[in-house]
Amino acid sequence: MKGKWIEIKVITSPDAIEMVSGIFYSLDVKGVAIEDPNDILQKLNTPSWDYVDMNLYEYGDKAAVVKGYFSDEDNIDEILKYINERLEELKSDGFDIGEGKILVNQVYEEDWATSWKKYYKVTKLGKRIVVKPRWEEYTPEDNEIVIELDPGMAFGTGTHETTILCLELLEKYLKGGETVFDIGTGSGILAIASSKFGAEKVVGVDIDEVAVDAARENVEYNNIGNVEIRHGNLTDVLTEKADIVVANIIADIIINMTSSIKNFIKQEGLFIVSGIIQDRKNDVLKELENNNLKIIEIKEMGEWVGIVSKPE
Results as ranks from 00 to 15, higher is better:
residue 220 E to P: 07
residue 248 N to K: 08
residue 215 A to D: 08
residue 238 L to M: 04
residue 283 D to S: 13
residue 254 I to N: 06
residue 221 Y to V: 08
residue 200 E to R: 09
residue 293 L to D: 15
residue 219 V to F: 04
residue 283 D to V: 01
residue 190 L to D: 10
residue 228 E to P: 05
residue 303 E to K: 01
residue 207 I to K: 09
residue 239 T to Y: 05
residue 202 V to I: 09
residue 226 N to I: 01
residue 188 G to F: 06
residue 242 A to I: 01
residue 236 D to R: 01
residue 267 Q to S: 15
residue 261 I to F: 07
residue 242 A to D: 14
residue 217 E to L: 11
residue 210 V to R: 13
residue 243 D to P: 04
residue 223 N to C: 09
residue 192 I to S: 06
residue 302 G to K: 01
residue 287 E to A: 12
residue 188 G to W: 05
residue 190 L to P: 07
residue 244 I to L: 09
residue 256 N to K: 10
residue 243 D to F: 00
residue 269 G to F: 01
residue 227 V to P: 10
residue 274 S to G: 03
residue 201 K to E: 12
residue 284 V to Y: 05
residue 223 N to G: 11
residue 242 A to T: 07
residue 255 I to G: 08
residue 212 V to R: 00
residue 294 K to Y: 14
residue 246 V to E: 12
residue 255 I to S: 06
residue 222 N to M: 00
residue 259 S to Q: 15
residue 278 Q to G: 14
residue 238 L to F: 07
residue 200 E to V: 01
residue 255 I to L: 06
residue 294 K to D: 15
residue 282 N to C: 03
residue 297 E to Q: 08
residue 190 L to H: 01
residue 229 I to L: 02
residue 266 K to Q: 11
residue 293 L to I: 09
residue 272 I to E: 04
residue 284 V to P: 12
residue 299 K to P: 07
residue 293 L to V: 12
residue 211 A to C: 03
residue 249 I to G: 11
residue 233 N to M: 13
residue 199 A to S: 09
residue 192 I to D: 10
residue 213 D to Q: 14
residue 185 T to D: 05
residue 288 L to I: 12
residue 188 G to L: 03
residue 202 V to A: 07
residue 202 V to W: 08
residue 281 K to S: 12
residue 230 R to P: 11
residue 224 I to T: 03
residue 263 N to V: 03
residue 287 E to M: 10
residue 286 K to M: 13
residue 295 I to R: 12
residue 258 T to M: 07
